[in-house]
């Protein structure tokens, strides 16, 4: 495993004191009809029953700082709702941070399991939309179309609407789209968990290839074995706070120690048999 902070390397991502607060607009049950200002009166009149639309703030990411270097592959681990995906989207430039700043070198490309393209449209159209958004020209996409479809392994399904895809097929297509242009920073959000063993192998090879081109890879995953396999450094998020940042083995071991025990924390194996 590589050292967490190769001092000779140049930074690819600098995250400085980043806070992300979601404003959640939603119903609150049986809210008191206390405020008599026009707005709440208006809302009362037009809300069904006694539900009041309220705005709540959720701090998804709190004061996260780190520096990522070229050629690093960084895993982000943590429980559900710990802010992993939000942080990743923020680095990808998709969700602006509420406070703090992020610098990046080059163009980020995020591949999320929830990256909804246009689900009513065929995979083919989505390849064009995704590819062009990543900065490829139509001609380049045309040229790489067969490769993209091959890599995703979805075959003729590419001409069906994406809503008819299985989650695995959709994730594979998204992976193929986001790696079609060699991104400066590749971010993978849980996408590898849904593929089959064969696809996992191909995607691992692709990730290694991208790292070799001095790009930086971020990987959010609940599969500690995937993290161990692909990452040299791990960020551990807990309730929006960056709890640990260090070499994969140390941090994953510490994280596993906090999980309810099913089996003793296994030593890393090259190819663990099953995923959680």
């Amino acid at each position: 495993m590589a050292a967490p902070e190769p001092k000779d390397s140049t930074p690819a991502v600098i995250c400085s004191h980043v806070d992300i607060t979601y404003r959640v607009q939603g119903a609150k049950k049986m809210g008191p009809v206390a405020d008599e200002d026009d707005e709440s009166l208006f809302k009362n009149l037009f809300s069904r029953g006694r539900e009041l639309a309220t705005i709540q703030s959720v701090e998804a990411v709190k004061d996260v700082s780190f520096v990522a270097y070229h050629g690093e592959s960084i895993g982000i681990i943590g429980r559900n709702g710990s802010g992993k995906s939000t942080l990743l989207r923020s680095i990808a430039g998709l969700i602006p941070p509420t406070r703090g700043r992020i610098w990046i070198s080059g163009e980020p490309s995020l591949l999320g399991v929830n990256a909804v393209l246009m689900s009513k449209l065929s995979g083919e159209r989505n390849i064009y939309i995704g590819g062009q958004a990543l900065g490829l020209t139509r001609a380049q996409i045309k040229e790489r179309f067969a490769d993209i479809v091959d890599f995703s392994g979805i075959g003729d399904s590419v001409y069906r609407p994406m809503k008819t895809y299985s989650s695995g097929q959709a994730a594979r297509l998204r992976f193929a789209i986001s790696t079609a242009a060699t991104p400066d920073i590749l971010m993978i959000d849980e996408a590898l968990a849904t593929g089959d063993a064969d696809f996992k192998e191909r995607s691992s090879a692709k990730v290694a290839e991208i790292r070799q081109q001095a790009s930086t890879v971020f990987l959010v995953s609940h599969s500690n074995s995937t993290i161990r396999e692909l990452c040299s450094r791990v960020l551990w998020m807990e309730k929006g706070v960056l709890l640990a940042d260090g070499p994969t083995e140390e941090v994953v071991a510490a994280y596993e120690a906090t999980l309810p025990k099913k089996k003793p924390p296994a030593k890393p194996k090259p190819l663990p048999p099953a995923e959680a």
């Binding site: 004191h17 780190f66 709890l243 640990a244 140390e250």
Partner: peptide, 12 residues
């Protein structure tokens, strides 16, 4: 969590 060794390095 937070024991020495796995705390993030001091932020810039």
């Amino acid at each position: 969590p937070g024991s020495p060794g796995d705390t993030p390095p001091p932020a810039l």
